[in-house]
Every structure is written in structure tokens, then in C-alpha cells.
Design a protein around this nucleic acid. Structure first.
Lengths: 110, 110
DNA sequence: TTATTTAATCGTAATATTGCAATGATACAA
DNA sequence: TTGTATCATTGCAATATTACGATTAAATAA
């Protein structure tokens, strides 16, 4: 039915899935990578850089901002976006805990 | 239009997004976490554990298998699933590289 | 052979996501 | 004031995802 049954899962599972969802589109990866290099940039610049329409970039920025992984400040007529260091670290830690919870062990199972 | 413009992005960006997509649903997180604990398990067991229909679990298992993060072997009438250690490591490394490419730096930008 | 068990697949319905043109809203310049 | 630049929001169309009942296929038990 296209609707995730969130109530069947733990808070941790739902949160990790929500974090993953924001990385689950190459445009959002590209935006984040650009911010990593440029430190800060605005919508117009990303439109030129990525080749998507202004409305589309704006929508992706909104999702990134909603999750808190980026933040934006109004700078005259434009808006400067940048990485939110605390949130980046938090999300990184979440994934690290998840990935490290696997101990490859000596034997293969199947 | 609901279709991602993959050609606008690099292979790395598309791949990371594809990896993230598999983690972007709590049921798949739950399946992986169960496999981490139980080492191996089958469809029926997951149906009891998660409370989703058999067809739904089967569909999630298929996506996990398609990405290569789990593998399944037929064991009589059932199928044993387990983590693929090499793929797990590969995906973990990809995310680690991505997360570590951010250097918080001394100054905040916005 | 005839059940039974297990899991994949098919078909379908409901919801979510992606993308963009058009429209607003705001800040600033002329 | 009027125009311009920047970005958010709205509305819509197309595609993707999620979920599950029903069916199918394969292995095994009786």
C-alpha cells in the first residue's frame, strides 16, 4: 500500500531508516558532497552545478534541512547552506554503530 | 516525475544512493539486525518476528539479496539467509569514506 | 500418490517520491 | 516606486515503493 508500517519497528530502526532515506538519492549525495568541498553555497549555484531545476533543488534542500544535516542562513537576497557538524556526527555515529554490530566470525553460515 | 535522473550524477553518487536505499526501510533494518543476532534465519521466522506478510518479507529479502548484502541457500524445504561479509564490509567502507570526507573545521559557515 | 510446508512470484491497491512550470514572497538596486 | 534576483511553495504528472492475497513451484512427509 506504499505506506510503511512504522509501528511494527523500534525507534532505532525507524530513525536509521529515516537517516538512510536522505542519502537514498544521488542529488542529495551530490549536494552534500558539494557542500563538503565548497563549505557553503546557495540554491542558484547548485542548480548550475547539478543540472536540475530550481524547484527540484529547493525540494532536496528542504529534505536535508528537515533532517537537520544542513542549515541555511539568509544572506541578503540569497540563502547560504552548510553542513550541520553536530548532526553530521550524530548520523555518522548511528551508521557506525550499526555497521560495527556485525562480527564476521570464523564460520560462514550459508 | 518519480524517476531519478541518474545520468546527471557520478557512479559513486548513484552507488552510494543505491546502498542507502536498501537501509531506507525499517523492515530491512530489522531483517539485517535479526540476521546479525541469529546469524542465519529463514522467511517464516522473519514473518513471525516482524509481523509483516510472507509476501512482503520475501520482497524485502529479494532487495537485500539483489544488492548482495545477504545471501540465501536452500536447505531442504526452506531457505537460510545470512549476511554476506564481503559486501557488508564494502558498503561499510563506502559510508565511512563518505562520512569521513567531512572535516568540521574551526569556523562555522552560516 | 497425496498432503504439507516453505518461499517466490503475480496482480493489484494505496501511498510516496521525483521533477518541473508557474506562482509568490522577500531583499535589494535603480 | 519599479524592476531584478533569489528562493520557497503550489499544483500536477509520472514513476517508485510498500503491502498483501492468491497462486505457483519445489521439497519432503505420510
Amino acid at each position: 500500500m506504499g505506506v510503511t508500517k512504522s509501528d511494527l519497528f523500534s525507534t532505532t530502526q525507524n530513525e536509521l531508516a529515516t537517516y538512510a532515506k536522505v542519502f537514498a538519492h544521488p542529488a542529495r549525495i551530490a549536494i552534500l558532497q558539494y557542500l563538503l568541498r565548497a563549505n557553503t553555497c546557495c540554491n542558484t549555484h547548485l542548480v548550475e552545478e547539478l543540472g536540475l531545476a530550481q524547484a527540484t533543488i529547493s525540494q532536496h534542500l528542504k529534505e536535508l534541512k528537515n533532517l537537520g544535516i544542513i542549515q541555511g542562513t539568509v544572506e541578503g537576497v540569497s540563502v547560504n547552506y552548510c553542513i550541520n557538524p553536530e548532526k553530521w556526527q550524530e548520523i555518522k555515529d548511528r551508521f557506525t554503530v550499526f555497521f560495527d554490530s556485525y562480527e564476521p566470525g570464523g564460520f560462514s553460515c550459508c
